[in-house]
C-alpha cells in the first residue's frame, strides 16, 4: 500500500473525501466539545455531510435535474434514463432536511430547559452539579 495508488482514487472520488472531512469535523464537535450548543452545531454539520453524500450519489454526467421535459400540447419525447439524474436521493434528502430542522428545534428546546435548571450549558459544570446536589 503506497501512496501512489491513492492518487487516482483521490482524482475520481474527491467528493467523498470532502464529505468525510465534514463528517469528521461534526463528529469531533459532538464528542470532544464541552458546550452543548457546540455539540448541536456538530450534529448539524454531520447531517449536512450525510445530505451532500446522498445528493452526490444521485449525480450523473451529462444529465439534468429530475424534471421531465414536457410541452403544453401534451406531446413529449421518449424518456431516457441517462438524461435525468437519480431522483431518489433528492426525495430522501428533501425530507431529511426538514426533519433535521425539526430535530434541531427539539435539541435547542432541550438545551434551553437544561440551562433553565442548571444555569449553564457546559457539560462538566452540569455533571458536577448532578454529582453534588
Amino acid at each position: 500500500m503506497d501512496m501512489a495508488q491513492y492518487i487516482p482514487v483521490l482524482l475520481t472520488k474527491y467528493n467523498y473525501w470532502v464529505y468525510i472531512t465534514l463528517m469528521m469535523i461534526g463528529l469531533w464537535a459532538m464528542i470532544a466539545k464541552n458546550n452543548l450548543v457546540k455539540k448541536i452545531i456538530g450534529m448539524s454539520i454531520f447531517q449536512t455531510a450525510i445530505i451532500l453524500f446522498y445528493v452526490s450519489i444521485g449525480a450523473k454526467y451529462g444529465a439534468t435535474i429530475p424534471i421531465l421535459r414536457h410541452g403544453h400540447n401534451g406531446a413529449h419525447e421518449a424518456i431516457r434514463t441517462v438524461d435525468y439524474i437519480n431522483p431518489l436521493p433528492h426525495v430522501l434528502m428533501l425530507t431529511a432536511i426538514v426533519v433535521s430542522v425539526a430535530t434541531l428545534g427539539v435539541a435547542l428546546a432541550l438545551s434551553i430547559r437544561i440551562h433553565r435548571r442548571h444555569r449553564t450549558l457546559e457539560e462538566d459544570d452540569i455533571l458536577t452539579q448532578l454529582r453534588e446536589p
Partner: peptide, 13 residues
C-alpha cells in the same frame, strides 16, 4: 477514506 476506493465514481451513470 480508504473505503472510498470501492465507491462509485463521481457522476457515474
Amino acid at each position: 477514506m480508504a473505503a472510498t476506493a470501492d465507491f462509485p465514481d463521481w457522476g457515474d451513470p
